[in-house]
């Protein structure tokens, strides 16, 4: 039984980037312990929702609002959101040349947990996660995403998620660019982290990650709106029939499932 305690409430969200309206009234509620998948064609606005929720300065909310743990997100900067428990796994993680993974992780863990973690303890914690994700230890001395393969980048995103223990995780195309083994490892990582206290929004173009991470709810986005919502079964229908049928069916309001 999920507690039905909402962690993220999106109401009539309109978002623009440089005067271009991309989100045109998104409504979505995610409760603690729920895994939601957000699907849709490229350019439908999925990633925009992820960036907006995380607080990218280029994305402006022009109408509507988002409540994260009951608090209006628009009043928080990206780093404040992260410290409050929001996490975005990037579709294209950014390289920070010259900054080692271990230094970066220690700095962000310190920021998010609000205190320094003793070096020894932190090493141990890191090692456990590295093993689970099938990453060698020399990963830590490399520079953040600098010259990383697609699979390495995505593993680092999941490693960070494991360390930061967010309450709301936005996973933007975490499956893209992964071969099947990497996909299994990364999916197992996500599943291991999911729990009754955390909400997950899986943003994905393809259904294949949903074979490993099972969502309770699936939403389809089109032209900046959620046009269809349903149970996990919807993903299979989309896989079989493509996105074309969506346009022919009327939108189902997300609220109706509560």
């Amino acid at each position: 039984m999920t507690s039905r305690e909402p962690i993220l409430v999106i109401k009539d969200l309109h978002v623009a980037v440089e005067d271009k309206q991309i989100l045109k009234g998104v409504n979505l509620t995610i409760n603690k312990g729920e895994v939601h998948a957000l699907m849709g064609r490229n350019g439908s606005g999925k990633s925009t929702l992820g960036y907006t929720l995380m607080g990218h300065p280029r994305y402006h909310i022009t109408q509507g609002k988002v409540l994260f743990k009951g608090k209006d997100l628009s009043e928080m900067t990206a780093d404040e959101r992260a410290r409050a428990g929001m996490y975005l796994a990037f579709q294209y993680p950014v390289a920070i040349p010259g900054v080692s993974v271990s230094n970066f992780l220690r700095a962000s863990v310190k920021a998010v947990r609000g205190q320094d973690v003793p070096v020894k303890e932190f090493r141990k914690e890191l090692k456990e996660h590295l093993t689970k994700l099938g990453v060698k230890e020399d990963f830590l001395s490399r520079y953040v995403n600098d010259g990383f393969s697609g699979g390495e980048k995505k593993r680092l995103e999941i490693l960070q998620m494991a360390l930061m223990k967010p309450q709301m995780a936005l996973l933007d195309e975490t499956d893209s660019g992964l071969d099947i083994d990497a996909l299994k490892t990364v999916s197992a990582g996500i599943t291991a982290l999911a729990g009754p206290e955390m909400g997950i929004l899986l943003i994905t173009h393809y259904q294949r990650i949903l074979n490993y991470v099972t969502p309770q709810f699936v939403h389809v986005m089109q032209d900046g709106q959620i046009v269809l919502s349903g149970s996990g079964e919807l993903a299979h229908k989309l896989e079989a029939e493509g996105y074309d049928f969506v346009t022919k069916e009327p939108a189902v309001a997300t609220q109706s499932r509560t």
Binding site: M54, G55, H56, P57, T77, A78, D79, R81, A82, R83, Y87, L88, F90, P93, V94, I96, F104, A107, S108, A111, V112, Q160, M164
Partner: peptide, 8 residues
């Protein structure tokens, strides 16, 4: 932004 999203 990437670093901000990690709480920095």
């Amino acid at each position: 932004f990437y670093l901000a999203s990690r709480g920095l």
